[in-house]
Every structure is written in C-alpha cells, then in structure tokens.
C-alpha cells in the first residue's frame, strides 16, 4: 500500500507542478489544488499508514500508539485543508479581478 500511496503523491505533485508552470490563471488554480492534495496526503502519511485504528478512544483499549494511529499528523492536515481552501478562494477572486483589470487571463497580466 505504501508504494501505491507514494506513487499517488508523486503523480499529484507532478501534475500540480506542471500546471504551476503553465501560463493561464485557471491552470494555476487547479495546479495549486492538486499540489495541496499531494502535500496533505504526504503530511498525513508521515504518521504511518494503519487500517482500523481511528484515533477515537474506545473503552477497554489502552490509549497508546500500538492501538491507535498517531493523531498529530491528522490534526496538522486538518488545519492544512482549511488553509488551502482559504487560499484557493482568495486566488480565485484575485484571478477574477486580474482578468477584469488586465483583460487577459495570463498569469503576468499581459500576453507577452
């Protein structure tokens, strides 16, 4: 499973970086959100993959890392998801405004 997830992160990163280097603003938005998926998955995976070990305490199970997955990366990713949402919203509005002001959707605001 680790191999699959690692490859998935790689593909998401690659697609995201490709789009980052493209000239159209919408490509940038999609690229950044793909990159955000990759980064969130990466941070999440730092805690190690585990199946059926949700960090939700159950009675009679000792509260340690042998029986639950590490909650710290999850809490970090939760914050990261929210921030990337806010960033996407802001970016979208900025490209709308830039489009309205410059008349083009090139990332530099001008068609060379």
């Amino acid at each position: 499973m680790e191999v699959v997830l690692a490859l998935a992160i790689g593909i998401l990163t690659g697609s995201g970086v490709w789009l980052l280097l493209r000239p159209r603003t919408f490509q940038l938005v999609v690229g950044l959100s793909l990159l955000a998926y990759a980064v969130n998955l990466f941070i999440f995976s730092i805690g190690g993959l585990a199946i059926d070990k949700e960090p939700i305490l159950a009675d009679g199970v000792p509260p340690d890392l042998a029986h639950y997955t590490d909650p710290v990366p999850q809490a970090l990713v939760l914050t990261a998801i929210v921030i990337s949402f806010a960033m996407t919203a802001l970016l979208l509005v900025i490209i709308m405004a830039s489009r309205g002001m410059t008349g083009t959707d090139h990332v530099d605001g001008t068609e060379e």
Binding site: I9, G10, F42
Partner: peptide, 21 residues
C-alpha cells in the same frame, strides 16, 4: 521538471512512510 518533482516526492514519501516517526 514536473516528472523530477513528482518522482522525488514519491521517493521521499515512500522513504518516510516506511519509517517510524
């Protein structure tokens, strides 16, 4: 560049996932 970044990230993720924090 994109393939390099993606490949590097995949290797890094794999290396990290197979280790204990």
């Amino acid at each position: 560049v994109a393939v390099g970044a993606g490949g590097g990230m995949a290797i890094l993720a794999y290396a990290v996932m197979t280790r204990e924090l």
